[in-house]
Design a protein around this nucleic acid. Structure first.
Ligand SMILES: [Zn+2]
Ligand SMILES: [Zn+2]
Ligand SMILES: [Zn+2]
Ligand SMILES: [Zn+2]
Lengths: 285, 285
DNA sequence: AAAGCAGGTCACGAGGTCAG
DNA sequence: CTGACCTCGTGACCTGCTTT
């Protein structure tokens, strides 16, 4: 696939993305999850396109996880890697998500409610005229935890949500354009939810993370193993194809073979089933 | 103290020991061992209060403790066996241990306070998707001096303490999350010790390692061998039980048999004694 | 003034490097 | 392969300007 590139108003030099830009979460469940949450409306369309790409690149996500009997406990996960945008000293402060990455927004930057990170990233991008490149298909998901893995897609998202030098709003925000739901006075059509939406938003990330971790911990389908399987399969087929023409089994033999094969299959598939069960047990209910 | 090299080859060949050095060696070393264990244990008690990491890997550490239980003296440890952190020119700098190996941490890498070594190792591991294998039981202790001996267990420990691409923290550390005790602003498990205690901490790790290694290198009682022994024993008993009723030995025959059995026993036990000697020689003095 | 954002600052850490 | 060292992108704060 050709690699999309950006030459915005000011773009010239090239910068290399790190090759580990895979979004480390979101599997097939993401759609239903997204549907439930209004906060992600803006990117719903984009997410739908991601589904393909994500499911086929799943194996790359398992780097470092195979053969490790990792037992992530939920308490630790929620402590360590769940977003904690709300500082403990300002419980009163409302959470407003960045339109680019979903982190806590710090204000209305370049025309978009965004976080300090995305603001700085966008500023740097338009200042230094950097041309980013996506090493994949240019559809990387941009969320807080992986926003730094693909600069191209982050910048693309910035533009998509409307960041621009021209959208800069100077000075004080007019009083009446402020609202409870959008303290930064951006366009008022996006977040019709009350404050409960914020907690749902956070909970969502929590769930996403949990599922991702559970998957990592128990999915044994790695690239290596797939290749190995393919090799095994082809050699097996070769071996079988030759004698198959000259061999005649009796019905009894066939029956016996069927039984033995079934037993063999059952034996082989048991671990996989166990893994699925383990995975299911990890999904928060 | 220089690093003792315990390569696999070294361990394998180390059971050779000339017989004549046996007795004096043994007695002398035995004393040393006891003294060291005195120091060793109290410090461990103190460590448990301050160091989460140690208690977290208690299981592994027990290997080193099992045969050892005595009374303490703190001053002595810091006096005679302190091992300095890598840099001796910055005495003012506070010591913060790597959560993986206990070496001096260089920062908050992949979500965990860790040293340069573990950081680089983890990066390499997740980049190249290397699949490690443990040559033992997958419970190797991972501490500074032996962290390079088992990649599998080192990586496992990395994951266990929470290293992950998703836990990466970019940018400057928020001011309010910094504290005197935890310069890296990581999670809330702090190390309220002064630097002297940290040096002791480091020294302890090395001592633990030495003893454990010495034990591992010369203890022949592995799980495998125990099982083998049990099998041998039961078959032997079966074989014996049958003829024992119908056989009558003369006194002379019995005497001869006693002698031969004693000789056999002596022959069998010699390697064990040698191993004890070798173990004693490895204990730092 | 007061509020609020663009841009600058620079502590940090990811990733690369390369002797050992 | 390891890890001490280096480079540079990141983002939490800060400063100064613009608009009410
Ligand atoms: Zn953002
Ligand atoms: Zn991308
Ligand atoms: Zn370490
Ligand atoms: Zn191991």
């Amino acid at each position: 696939m050709d690699q999309p590139s950006y030459s915005a108003a000011n773009v010239a030099s090239s910068s290399e993305c790190t090759r580990d830009q895979l979004p480390s979460m979101f599997l097939h469940r993401q759609q239903s999850i997204e549907n439930r949450n209004l906060l992600f409306n803006q990117s719903f369309h984009q997410l739908q396109q991601h589904d393909n790409q994500l499911s086929q690149s799943t194996e790359a996500l398992h780097v470092g996880y195979e053969d490790i009997d990792q037992k992530p406990d939920l308490a630790k996960i929620s402590k360590e890697s769940v977003i904690q945008p709300a500082d403990s000293n300002t419980p009163k402060q409302q959470f407003v998500p960045c339109k680019v990455c979903g982190d806590r927004a710090s204000g209305f930057h370049y025309g978009v409610t965004s976080c300090e990170g995305c603001k700085g990233f966008f500023r740097r991008s338009i200042q230094k005229q950097i041309e980013y490149r996506c090493l994949r298909d240019g559809k990387c998901m941009v969320i807080r935890l992986n926003r730094n893995r693909c600069q191209y897609c982050r910048f693309k998202k910035c533009l998509a949500v409307g960041m621009s030098r021209d959208s800069v709003r100077y000075g004080r925000v007019p009083k009446r354009s402020k609202s409870v739901d959008d303290p930064f006075g951006g366009s008022s059509d996006l977040y019709p939810d009350d404050s409960a939406a914020e907690s749902r938003h956070l909970a969502l990330y929590d769930i996403i993370l949990n599922i991702s971790q559970a998957h990592h911990a128990h999915c044994a389908v790695t690239e290596d193993k797939i290749k190995l399987l393919q090799r095994k399969h082809s050699t097996l087929m070769q071996r079988i194809s030759i004698p198959s023409s000259q061999v005649n089994f009796t019905d009894e033999q066939l029956e016996t073979q069927k039984l033995s094969m079934w037993s063999c299959l059952a034996h082989s598939i048991t671990p996989a089933v166990n893994r699925v069960v383990e995975f299911a047990k990890r999904v928060p209910s």
